[in-house]
Every structure is written in C-alpha cells, then in structure tokens.
Design a binder for these strands. Structure first.
Lengths: 135, 135
DNA sequence: CTATATGCAAATAGTTTGCACGGAT
DNA sequence: ATCCGTGCAAACTATTTGCATATAG
C-alpha cells in the first residue's frame, strides 16, 4: 500500500514528516532509531527527534509499524508485513525476512502444554550466503 | 549448579550481593529489572542499583545470565540454561519455558536461502492453560 | 476554519562511570 | 598490603511531555 494511503487508512494526516519516516523504514527494511535519525538528518534536517518518537509510537499502536527486538542488539523498526521470521547475519548484521509455516510447532506446543498459541516471533542467527562465500 | 559454584567457575567472587541477584533470578525464572529491584529492596535493601546493573552486565558477558527481549514488553533476565523457547501468556504475562527441536526449520532455512543457521530465539504468544480455564 | 501535528525546551527515566571506602585473601 | 567489589553521587543517554506555532484537510 502506498504510504499516503496507509496513513489515511489509519486516520493519520499525511504530513511530510510521517511520509519521510515511512519512506525511511521502507528503504531500510529494518531500521534502528539511530539508522532512522541518521537518514532523516540527511533528507529532512528539520524533522525533530520528538516527532520521530511520537510517530513511531503512534504507528506501533496502530500496528502500521512493528518493533523487533533481538538479544544483545538494538531494537529495530519495520513496516508491518505478513508473518515472517527474521534471519540475522552474525557477521554483517544484515537482516533478511523469511516466510515459513510454523503451525506444526504451534500444534506441538498446544498438545504438550494445554496452552492456546496466538502467534510467534522467531529469529534465527545465521551467517548469510554472501558472508559464507567470502570466508 | 549451586550459585557459589557458578560464580567461582566464572572467576567472580561470591559476594552476598551477587548471590542475592542470582537467587532472585532463580526465584523468578524470568525477571525484569523492575522485578529484581523490587525483590532485592525487600531482602537486601542496601544493595545498590549500580551493583545490580554492573553485575547483570558482567554475568551476561560471561554467559551466566541471558537477556530475553519480547516485542512491546520489558526485557527479562534469566539464568542461562539449555536451549528452549519462551511461551508468554498474553493474559497473565507469565513466561513458561518449553524444550523443542528446531533442526528441521533450520534445515529448511539453510536449503532455501543458502545461509548457515547458528542458533535461534523463539517466542510464542499464548494464552496459558490456567487463563484458558478461567475464561 | 479547525483540529491535529510539529519543533523546541524542559522534564523524566534509564544506565553508566569515577572515586573513596571496606572486606577478603 | 593488595585486589576486587560496593555504594554513592554525578554524568550521560534515551525518551516523553507541555506549550506556542504551523499546517493538512
């Protein structure tokens, strides 16, 4: 969905600041706050830090943006998308998305615990293909 | 392993403060910083916040303690243990551990991406058995 | 025009650090 | 006597808030 549309759907005005934040997230795929600040200070220097914080929080509330946390790493933000797992390369730190079915695991958990599984957040530590080929 | 032993193995002196921190983690299973502070202020009021921070960081460095992060939630600390996934109840917020094989998923990822999988961090959002039974 | 969003500065929260003292070997 | 760990206060970093102004619809 185009970003203007995405904002309207969520009853947020399409300000240049918001569009810039969304563009930045899109461009990065996964961006830390630091990434966002750095990129924005290049293309929209007057966009203030409080506006970044306020809008990220708002967009997370509305589920337009997701916050992804990895052990021992900074938090990342991404535009919400279909269910996927994260592959994070321990060498170059790049993050890839990967689509995978997890129903069988959920089912196993439900059978063995009696709990009801609602969703999941999966992250795999990898060495990516590119890094492997240069080792 | 008893905590005194655990500390010695990692070349840390077994001070009352460190033992208290480890006991607290053990007692909670998974504890936020806030949990830790609250419990410690009850049983060891003079133990300072900087000592908590310093020791948690040190123990994480030495892999005695692991930091676990969940989207939209505070970070948790746990004494490092065998590979397991986390089940977090969205109603009562309790965290259970669950042991599961993930080799088949790793294999699928490796086949489809060409990456090498080193490890994983899996978290499932659930409604736990207890909460289910009182709904 | 009106409600909402922004920027700035100040407030608040979270974490780390420097240093002098105290306890264990 | 020496080394390491602790507590305290101060420093630093991260995040949120209040308010006057600007702007999208």
């Amino acid at each position: 969905m185009p970003h203007i549309q995405l904002l309207k759907t969520n009853e947020l005005k399409a300000t240049p600041q918001r569009l810039c934040i969304l563009d930045t997230l899109q461009e990065c795929g996964h961006a830390t706050l630091e990434d966002i600040q750095k990129i924005i200070s290049g293309k929209f220097p007057t966009l203030s830090l409080s506006t970044i914080y306020r809008n990220l929080n708002e967009m997370i509330q509305k589920d337009m943006v997701s916050e992804v946390k990895f052990a021992n790493k900074k938090d990342y933000f991404e535009i919400s998308k279909d269910k996927h797992v994260h592959l994070i390369c321990q060498k170059c730190k790049k993050i890839e998305d990967f689509e995978i079915q997890t129903d069988d695991i959920s089912k196993k958990i439900e059978e063995q615990t009696g709990d009801k599984v609602l969703g999941d957040t999966l992250c795999f530590d990898v060495i990516c293909k590119d890094c492997l080929s240069t080792m």
